[in-house]
Design a protein around this nucleic acid. Structure first.
Length: 904
RNA sequence: GGGCGAUUAGCUCAGCUGGUAGAGCACAUCCCUUACACGGAUGGUGUCGCAGGUUCGAGCCCUGCAUCGCCCACCA
């Protein structure tokens, strides 16, 4: 005899084994040549590739769990299933990490040089990637590890380059001098979508600029950024503003600088804000830039790319940090008598979403993708934005929850051109080459040997592409595009994309664009172009007080720590339980106890089953299924149906809850208890129970496996002698339960009611559980007799056990003199309290019941007396109400009889 | 300034196309009954944010308001 398995499920003892087995057995492997694949029974998910710099956080755990649930479900249901894993090179983030490490050695990337630096980043990439993939495995995920991709893999790089060259030649990519969002810390331009607006206290500085001709007065402007006044080249007023119309065309003298600047009229200016006059700094503000263009104002760039005041600023300020310069400028303006006042002015400033440094708008030459406008070279084709709009408008891409559609549309309708060049070293280098001699420039898929015009050497652009440019090709490039692979033909488009709302614009929308542009170059299933059919936007994980989890707040919950403490299945189950459509998840660590307790419950139910069933021993083939066997099998069938429907409809929480209720309430609390007496008796009756017991456990394994893969795989192995399936559960069939017996459900319902009634009477009459009671059941009518008496009599041993009764009788009347009584739907239940009855208390209970029933009767009567109800409500609703009334009235009669019997 | 979401039991949340409010946790009482105390039995608690409206009937539909949160936005 081996040692008894512990009453505590120990995930640490089982999980690693199965994680290894799934990898070893290539559970996630997807075969484009399979029968299912050929039949088009395919399910694909592309993972949102986590950044290689990151560690798995709760958001990843949720995201990964949900994907794995769907992946495992579809795999079991016979779909050729591909969940494609991978990681993202995350240009800025990764470069930042490595630069910080270098900084500890007092080195910068420039000390290493580009090549050596990039080599250094690759080393880090390998380490971080291995770590995050290990974390994913620890969660129990089952992607196709053989198809692991990285956004800078050779194949993906080729795809990126191909697309850049194509978009360049087709006129969608252009280079231009624009005001861009410049991060002075990262030293690169970033796109509009990478700018996060943060609220700051802020101040509004009122400054007077004197007239250039020396005449009295001047004009007062208000600004939140006084340091930019050094770059002012005009003051704008609204053309309809009578206060100022006379001044338009006059010149002001810019304090501290001494430059003469004109007053211009521009409709952009809001008369009611501030002084109604706007200082115009074209080089450091988007609106001013546009005003500058309209009025042909110069745009001196007084702030350099490192955030210090540039050479174009007066000598006194050069080299000062922009915020230091602000103080200095204000002080100097005040000293010179130009500062009027300073008002508090809360507003928001753009910050870099990677490092939270305040963004400096700067004029800069960058590469852009044309979004809203059509390409001048392809005037007959829709703009890129319109491609994505059409995909959703035509219902080819569906967002869940549906409300995100309007967000998606709104973004596309207002998007500006996308700045794709980054002044970084880590990333896909822009494949544009310029002739060192004649200046000829073009984009090339293969590095050109020499200038095609003059044969001189050519130099490649030093910038790299926005990371999202490569992520946006993910669904295509990971399947081998632009090669025409079998994978592409079979697995594109994917079934669903699971992601967080934070990257709908950055990633989701642009993937759609890329799909619309390039998927037509392959024969996809159903000739579909969009990269995914559904986009499921799950909630964001928050801490228990509702704040986002973040490193800086230190309020994060580490999923690996939770997995260590509660087990991966518990973490997964809890997360799935909490995932209701699109709602954020307020997470407290203790929530995982629920998952853990549930796993423990299953563990112990299994312990019980294996303790009573010898799996190797053949059972009586003629063993008849008892009513409770038929009942639990029916419940299993119904539960499985709900689970399948819920999961395929992304109702994750509903699926988890229905399994939980089945296992805990029906199987453990009732079935196992009902079956114990039979198991003790043994023989053919016990065999029916044993069969059912194990069959249901097998069913639970299957149905729960997508959510809690480890424990079910473990259980599946233990049950192997029974089910005889050689493969891992992860590779087995979902199976469709079909057993259905409504009469059995009715019978068990009667038994349950009876037991519950006795327990209730016992508790209310304060009869300790150790004390046995005599139970009498009196069916209320002859027709009830048939149903109730049979059920109760056939389940007598079980009932005796479940309510600690010494005897159980079913009779037409004759209750004991001193009793506690209660109603069930088919009759009355009595327990004999001879000698220990508290008549007062018993009567009080019945009176209370009577009052409740009286209220129900009154309510139902009032409703039915309402003519408009009976005439306008649906007939079945009225009928239901009538039945309810009849039931209550009948109960009232029974109650009064019971009361009478007590001498009340 | 707009848009969206939330507001239901002490807490965290379900509640499908309108027809007598549910779960988990917590709580109270009693139980270490031979699977499980990470357990069992029993038990409560809700004017479903506020104010109107539609309807025979509203947590669910409509209007307005309030509070909280998220996102978008060129009022310096």
């Amino acid at each position: 005899m081996s040692a008894e398995p512990s009453t505590r499920y120990d995930p640490k003892a089982t999980e690693p084994k199965w994680i290894d087995a799934w990898v070893r057995e290539k559970v996630g492997h997807a075969d484009p040549g399979s029968e299912a694949a050929r039949a088009g029974r395919v399910f694909t998910i592309f993972i949102p590739p986590p950044n290689v710099t990151g560690v798995l956080h709760m958001g990843h755990a949720l995201n990964g769990t949900l994907q794995d649930v769907l992946t495992r479900l579809h795999r079991m249901r016979g779909f050729e299933t591909l969940w494609l894993p991978g990681t993202d090179h995350a240009g800025i983030a990764t470069q930042n990490v490595v630069e910080r490490l270098l900084a500890k050695e007092r080195k910068s990337r420039h000390d290493l040089g580009r090549e050596a630096f990039v080599a250094e980043v690759w080393k880090w990439k390998d380490e971080y990637e291995a770590r995050i993939l290990g974390q994913m495995r620890r969660l129990g995920t089952s992607p196709d590890w053989d198809r692991l991709r990285f956004t800078m893999d050779a194949g993906l790089t080729a795809a990126v380059r191909h697309v850049f060259v194509d978009l360049f030649h087709r006129g969608y990519i252009y280079r231009g001098l624009r005001l861009v969002n410049w991060c002075t810390r990262c030293g690169t331009a970033i796109s509009d979508d990478e700018v996060t607006h943060e609220d700051v206290e802020g101040r509004l500085y009122w400054i007077t600029y004197p007239w250039a001709d020396g005449s009295e007065g001047g004009m007062t402007v208000a600004t939140t950024r006084p340091e930019t006044m050094l770059g002012d080249t005009g003051v704008a007023v609204n053309p309809d503003d009578e206060r100022y119309t006379a001044f338009v065309g006059r010149k002001l003298l810019l304090p501290l600088v001494g430059r003469e600047i004109p007053v211009v009229a521009d409709a952009y200016v809001d008369k009611s804000f501030g002084a109604g006059a706007l200082k115009v700094t074209p080089a450091h503000d988007q609106n001013d830039w546009e005003i500058g263009v309209r009025h042909k104002l110069a745009a001196p760039c007084v702030i350099a790319k490192d955030g210090t005041m540039s050479d174009e600023a007066p000598a006194a300020y050069r080299g000062l940090d922009r915020f230091e310069a602000r103080k200095r400028v204000v002080a100097d303006l005040e000293a010179a008598g130009h500062l009027v006042k300073i008002d508090p002015n809360p507003h928001s400033v753009g910050t870099c979403d990677r490092c939270h440094t305040i963004i400096e708008p700067l004029p800069s030459e960058q590469w852009f993708v044309r979004m809203r406008e059509r390409s001048p070279k392809e005037p007959d084709r829709p703009s890129l934005a319109d491609l994505a709009i059409a995909a959703t408008r035509e219902g080819r891409v569906r967002l869940v929850p549906e409300r995100w559609t309007s967000f998606y549309m709104h973004w596309l309708e207002n998007v500006r051109d996308w700045c794709i060049s980054r002044q970084l070293w880590w990333g896909h280098r822009i494949p544009v080459f310029t002739c060192t001699k004649c200046g000829h420039a073009d984009a090339y898929e293969k590095d050109p040997a020499a200038c095609p015009e003059c044969s001189s050497p050519m130099e490649q652009d030093t910038d790299v592409l926005d990371t999202w440019f490569s992520s946006d090709l993910w669904p295509l490039s990971t399947l081998g595009w632009p090669e025409q692979t079998d994978e592409l033909r079979v697995f594109y488009p994917s079934s669903v994309l699971m992601t967080d709302r934070g990257i709908i614009s950055l990633w989701v929308v642009r993937m759609v664009i890329m799909g619309e542009l390039y998927a037509p170059t392959v024969e996809t299933r159903g000739a579909r172009t969009e990269p995914f059919r559904d986009v499921y936007i799950h909630g964001t994980i928050l801490d228990k007080t509702g704040r986002k989890m973040s490193k800086s707040l230190g309020n994060g919950i580490d999923p690996l720590e939770m997995i260590d403490r509660y087990g991966a299945d518990a973490v997964r189950f809890t997360l799935v339980w909490m995932t209701t459509e699109g709602q954020d998840l307020k997470l407290d660590e203790t929530r995982f106890e629920m998952g853990r307790n549930f796993m423990n419950k299953i563990h112990n139910a299994t312990r019980f089953a294996l303790g009573v069933v010898d799996l190797g021993k053949r059972l009586d083939p003629d063993a008849v299924l008892a009513v409770e066997d038929r009942w639990i099998r029916t419940e299993l069938t119904r539960t499985q149906r709900v689970v399948t429907a819920a999961l395929t409809d992304y109702k994750f929480s509903a699926a988890a809850q229905v399994i939980y209720a089945f296992v805990w309430d029906n199987f453990c609390d009732w079935y196992l208890e009902l079956v114990k007496p039979r198991l003790q008796v043994g023989g053919a009756a016990a065999d029916g129970a044993k069969k059912t017991l194990v069959d249901v456990l097998v069913g639970i394994c299957r149905m729960l496996h997508p959510i809690a893969p480890h424990i079910t795989e473990e259980l599946w192995e233990q049950l192997r002698p029974w089910h005889g399936v050689a493969t891992l559960l992860a590779k087995s069939d979902w199976g469709e339960e079909t057993f259905d017996d409504d009469d059995a459900c009715t019978a068990i319902a009667a038994v349950r009611e009876t037991v519950e009634a006795v327990r209730k009477l016992r508790a209310e009459s304060r009869v300790p559980e150790k004390e046995k009671v005599d139970v009498l059941v009196v069916p209320k009518t002859e027709s009830a007799w048939a149903r109730l008496a049979d059920a109760v009599r056939s389940q007598a041993p079980q009932i005796l056990r479940l309510c600690q009764a010494s005897s159980l009788r079913v009779e037409r009347s004759a209750p004991p003199k001193e009793n506690a009584s209660g109603l069930i739907s088919l009759g009355d239940v009595f327990i004999d309290l001879a000698g220990k009855i508290d008549l007062v208390a018993e009567r009080a209970r019945l009176v209370k019941e009577t009052e409740k029933t009286g209220q129900a009767i009154a309510a139902a009567r009032a409703k039915l007396a309402n003519e408009s109800f009976t005439s306008r409500a649906k007939p079945e609703v009225v009928a239901q109400e009538r039945a309810r009334l009849a039931e209550s009235e009948e109960q009232a009669v029974r109650l009064s009889r019971l009361l009478e019997a007590l001498g009340g």
